[in-house]
Design a binder for these strands. Sequence first.
DNA 1: CTTTGTGCAAATTCTTTGCACCAAA
DNA 2: TTTGGTGCAAAGAATTTGCACAAAG
Lengths: 138, 138
Amino acid sequence: MVSRAELKEELIRAGIRPSVQRLAIFEYVRQSCQHPTAEVVYEALRDELGSLSLTTVYNTLKLFVDAGLIMMLTIDDTFRCFDGNCCSHAHFLCNSCGKIYDFELKRNYVDIVEGLDGFEVTDAQLYLKGVCPKCSKK
Amino acid sequence: MVSRAELKEELIRAGIRPSVQRLAIFEYVRQSCQHPTAEVVYEALRDELGSLSLTTVYNTLKLFVDAGLIMMLTIDDTFRCFDGNCCSHAHFLCNSCGKIYDFELKRNYVDIVEGLDGFEVTDAQLYLKGVCPKCSKK
DNA sequence: CTTTGTGCAAATTCTTTGCACCAAA
DNA sequence: TTTGGTGCAAAGAATTTGCACAAAG
């Protein structure tokens, strides 16, 4: 659990002014163990903040993604969601319950790819889909 | 290069009636070394077929994806595209020219993921982004 | 003839944009 | 007092749906 003050510092270091809305959104995405969509962030914070618009959520999430503070996931083509953990890791989407799980990697993605010489890789995502243990028990 | 007759057979084996439109769309996606969007497929085939609607392209591509004949890629969140090659391989999107490259894998995706026990993986995608050799020379 | 496919137009959904107002440095 | 942020309403883009007609078995 990171403090609000630390998150605020992180925004400032990234050149982003820490408005109330931005800090709340940043905190929410960072602390969330789920992978919220813009809509979910909006619903979760609108009461807490009193005033919040979906536009601001979209603007802010885009700002954070561009600054490299969070990641956008497109593991499912029907929705975009966000991950506050930028450390390299894989994602698993359960086709049954819809939950997205995080997994650590034993080695770098590019190690398993043949013939990448000359290609400069700046970003990588490994998306897995299937059925999670909870759902396969049922 | 696979013949039309073979592609037709493949559709029938998958339980899909090989209408003129479906066969043309299947052939196009299979033979294409690009990774066309629905729009691109539509533009490419509308003249050849005389009559074709974007709706049919969407319907048909969805039909093929559900049947496991082709794959949908969401490597870029701004467009969906399709890959006729269902053999496991990685994709690289050049952020400069927009081209998507295919890469073979040295080993299976799941080999590099930690703690997948109990998870049944039915589908996997490795998406890489960066700059391709052609663009980095410029 | 009976089922299935096609394609138009309209609806839907998600996201972005324009713009006026507000807040902070 | 100037720059930047927020949020409403409207626009935009991609995809899906409803339905009538066409085609194939």
